[in-house]
């Protein structure tokens, strides 16, 4: 199964990372790549360099900063492939982020192809991580309604067609010149979060922060500049009703 490790730290505490953290990180990456677990991962620039896009009635609103003002903010991510959640928790618990913050472990939706991400960025381009965020309680309620409702009480919408001009497939086509890969995540109620408490790594259920909007998926982009990334975000179907946070990937 494929999982996303969402690293969440209080940015003010980054300076508290112990000196051995860098070598621990290198060892973790080496081990996980060697075991065939780590498929992709990157550090992100701080939320000071984040930009969030929402569309309201068809017009694009660009604001500075992350999609939610939480104490802990997403600082990096890994995409891992391992047999089960317990392995994923063990892999996360061994990561040096737990010195100063939390790692949310969230499964991807089924069917995710193996991400192929070149080691080096295309010349003249920069990488951006697009965090696709949505009100997941509403999404979960909608999904539950589809399963529970009796047909005469609830009229289910037409399933999304592949050639819907406003659908995700049309969007993927439109941004194929700059999208490296991306995939939706399972609902946040499937998430677990690991963090260190009193010297021990403990696991709790749920996402790292209880915000109204939650990360629902992500896309890795390669763009010439921020405007190209904003253009991609502004046309994403979730930008209407949700939020797309753009974070530059740190070198």
């Amino acid at each position: 199964m494929k999982y996303m490790l969402i690293h969440a730290v209080d940015e003010a505490r980054l300076k508290d990372l112990p000196p051995q953290a860098e070598s621990e990180l290198a060892a973790w990456v080496e081990e996980m790549v060697g075991r065939g677990i780590e498929l992709d991962g990157a550090r992100l620039h701080s939320t000071a360099h984040a930009t969030t896009v929402r569309t309201v009635d068809g017009s694009v609103h660009v604001t500075d900063g992350p999609f939610a003002e939480t104490k802990e903010q997403i600082a990096g991510y890994d995409v891992i492939d391992c047999p089960d959640l317990d392995t994923a928790i063990a892999v996360a618990s061994a990561h040096p982020t737990v010195h100063i913050g939390a790692i949310e472990v969230r499964a991807f939706e089924d069917g995710m192809p193996r991400p192929e991400v070149p080691d080096t960025v295309t010349a003249g381009k920069r990488r951006y991580l697009m965090l696709v965020c949505a009100d997941m309680r509403r999404a979960m309620a909608d999904a539950a309604a589809v399963t529970d409702a009796s047909p005469d009480l609830w009229d289910p919408p037409e399933p999304e067609s592949a050639d819907d001009p406003n659908g995700i497939d049309a969007w993927v086509d439109r941004v194929s010149d700059r999208r490296v890969y991306g995939w939706p995540l399972a609902f946040p109620d499937t998430a677990v979060t690991v963090r260190r408490v009193d010297g021990r790594v403990v696991t709790t259920d749920g996402p790292f922060a209880e915000t109204k909007e939650q990360v629902a998926g992500y896309d890795l982009l390669e763009c010439r500049d921020l405007d190209e990334a904003l253009d991609a975000a502004g046309t994403h179907p979730v930008a209407a009703g949700g939020a797309i946070e753009i974070r530059p990937v740190a070198d």
Binding site: A48, H49, R224, I246, P248
Partner: peptide, 12 residues
């Protein structure tokens, strides 16, 4: 901070 964001976020 503003100049850093222009640089790191790639504002054209």
């Amino acid at each position: 901070r503003a100049r850093a964001k222009i640089k790191h976020a790639g504002i054209p």
